[in-house]
């Protein structure tokens, strides 16, 4: 039974996170209190959403390094929009954020799809371009809290059943992404395109178009996070979320999404992000310096990669043994 559960690395991550939380709460009583856990979840919401976008792209054997720059540009755009037109309803601003994010994602996708340029090169380029555009747009100026409207700042903070709307947004996105990945044609195409691009082509799947859609999804989610970020930290400037693209990749890797594409689940990406969130929130509590935090995060990523590689190898053997033992249910006539 336990082995059955551990076959899913998601389950293992849940256990590891639980152990971490338990360990930290011995050092800092109250760490495991529901309110604090809700707080950690809320704090990790943006990473969860961005990691899901990154996961979609990685599953197709690509990578999106421009997500954080997308957040910076779109965040600047909606911050300035809110400052310039305070009477614009929040829904309109969120739609603009989603739209700009989607367009930036689509630009990445078009380069990958139509010109066949490796995604790492395309998004390394757009990473700089998008952040540069944020500077051009703002002239280097900041949009500060006093320039932002009350609904813009406060809506994500509204509590609902003890969790701020920001956290609920992440939960809704997780649900939507789960539906897309497991219940739609696009989701299946994403797995197939990354798992075996040639076989996918022969099965009538347009791999290039599928990758394009993955980048659009990643961009749209980055656009959403742009608003959430600016609202949460109540400031928009050129350097927001600098380097955060690496956190999204890290969350995916820890969550068992194969960097070679085709393997990984929504639950994995979410748990990977939560794992990083727990560490980030816990280490200051137990007095560990930010530099040690970085080293710890890095070690965890490498450990996760090693673990996943071993898990992959072991999985084959375990299933072979299982197959020998179990009778052939329902399949063989």
């Amino acid at each position: 039974m336990i082995r059955q559960l551990f076959k899913y690395r998601e389950m293992l991550l849940v256990v590891v996170i639980a152990i971490l939380v338990a360990a930290f709460s011995t050092r800092s009583p109250g760490f495991a209190r529901p309110a604090n856990l809700a707080n950690i979840f809320n704090d990790t919401s943006i990473l969860i959403i961005l990691a899901l976008g990154q996961m979609t792209v990685i599953l197709t054997k690509s990578i999106d390094l421009s997500v954080a720059a997308n957040v910076a540009f779109t965040g600047m755009a909606v911050g300035m929009l809110n400052a310039a037109h305070p009477d614009l309803p929040l829904a309109a601003i969120v739609l603009v954020a989603l739209g700009i994010g989607a367009v930036l994602g689509a630009i990445n996708g078009l380069f990958v799809w139509k010109l066949g340029i490796p995604s790492i090169v395309v998004t390394l380029g757009t990473l700089t371009i998008y952040r540069g555009m944020a500077f051009v747009l703002s002239g280097g100026a900041w949009v500060n809290a006093h320039q932002m409207t009350e609904p813009f700042l406060q809506t994500p903070r509204q509590l609902f059943l003890g969790l701020p709307l920001l956290g609920w947004t992440a939960i809704v996105i997780v649900g939507i992404m789960y539906l897309i990945m497991s219940r739609t044609f696009l989701g299946r195409a994403i797995y197939a395109s990354g798992g075996n691009p040639t076989a996918a082509v022969y099965a009538g799947i347009d791999v290039g178009r599928t990758r394009f859609y993955a980048f659009v999804i990643s961009g749209t989610l980055a656009g959403l996070c742009a608003y959430l970020w600016v609202s949460r930290y109540a400031v928009a400037y050129v350097d927001i979320a600098a380097g955060f693209e690496l956190d999204t990749v890290a969350a995916c890797v820890i969550g068992g999404i194969s960097t070679l594409g085709g393997i990984g689940t929504v639950a994995g990406a979410v748990l990977g992000a939560l794992f990083l969130g727990v560490i980030k929130n816990a280490l200051p509590v137990i007095d560990i310096s930010p530099f040690a935090q970085m080293a710890i995060s890095g070690s965890v990523i490498i450990a996760a990669v090693i673990f996943n590689a071993r898990q992959e190898r072991r999985r084959g053997r375990i299933i072979l043994r299982d197959r020998g033992a179990s009778e052939e249910i329902g399949v063989a006539a």
Binding site: Y191, A192, G195, N196, A199
Partner: peptide, 9 residues
């Protein structure tokens, strides 16, 4: 092998 199946699925 190469063109036929998506082994992970």
């Amino acid at each position: 092998g190469r063109h036929g199946a998506v082994l992970e699925l």
